[in-house]
Nucleic acid binder design. Structure first.
Lengths: 146, 146
DNA sequence: TTTTTTAGTTTCATTTAGAAAGTTATATTT
DNA sequence: AAATATAACTTTCTAAATGAAACTAAAAAA
């Protein structure tokens, strides 16, 4: 497995940007963590309408980087499941901070996209919120019949 | 002041990506917060070598969005100072999570770019670390003679 | 007065993004 | 069994963004 990314410097912020600093990658991970999505056409249903070419490209990169694993369905052989690995799950705190940021400074989207409980937990107990969502994802993954 | 950004959806993660989801914007903010940089040529000195065209473009966008303010020097009229406003400072938690993420899963850059104390604080007391760096920036800004 | 410096802008070649249509293997319907 | 549909891509082609390099204007320094 060769390196799918060029690193511009040894700065840890720059390194993250080299890995996930584009307009689509984190949205795919978002759909996995928050939406428990795992199939190509599920990612295409999201409101941002990712072009299939971009989706294929980013899924490939995410797999090469070890953020997600790719599993062919055994029951339905047409389906290919993309599932989060540890590295992918660990991008979650970044996205939570992004959510908190844009909700604070732009329209309060959280009000329409998340329950009141989720908002409160996210702001008051960020760590607990994250732990909880990761636990839920692991359960989802464990109960998935492929 | 017209809107310099198109929002793809009401998702708060997508909104942040629409604002700062590219390879350069956060690096400029990083240099401001961590490096107390404020001049065009200071940003050009960073190891990632941002092209002047990109730098000018991103600084303009950051100002239009209200992340930074642009101040002409009164002593030296050639200098133009870019300084963080609240909105810009609030991107800091995102960058800290990015730093923690890439340090955990790729080479531990933190060891070479930050002091041991900074690393410990960043991991053990994230909130305190952030508060502290923001306080420092405000001091720097206050003491700046322009 | 000439030279430097700062903060950009312009030009142009290359890369990336994205819309749309096409492909292939499997699965479903008639 | 044959025709149709679906899932997961791939290809093609145009438009937009990137980036290297050279250029510029105003101010400062020598």
């Amino acid at each position: 497995m060769k390196n799918p990314v060029e690193f511009r410097s040894i700065c840890p912020v720059a390194t993250s940007l080299d890995l996930i600093g584009d307009k689509w990658t984190l949205l795919i991970l978002r759909d996995m963590i928050w939406g428990h999505k795992s199939l190509f056409n599920e990612f295409q249903q999201s409101p941002e309408s990712i072009p299939s070419k971009m989706l294929a490209n980013r899924l490939k990169k995410l797999e090469e980087l070890g953020f997600v694993s790719k599993i062919k369905g055994s029951f339905n052989k047409k389906s290919i499941y993309y599932l989060l690995e540890k590295k992918g799950l660990d991008t979650f705190p970044i996205m939570v901070e992004m959510a908190v940021f844009s909700s604070k400074h732009f329209f309060d989207h959280l009000g329409t996209t998340y329950t009141k409980e989720a908002r409160t937990t996210m702001k008051k107990d960020r760590k607990g919120y994250i732990t909880n969502l990761i636990t839920n994802y692991k359960k989802f993954k464990k109960n998935l019949v492929i």
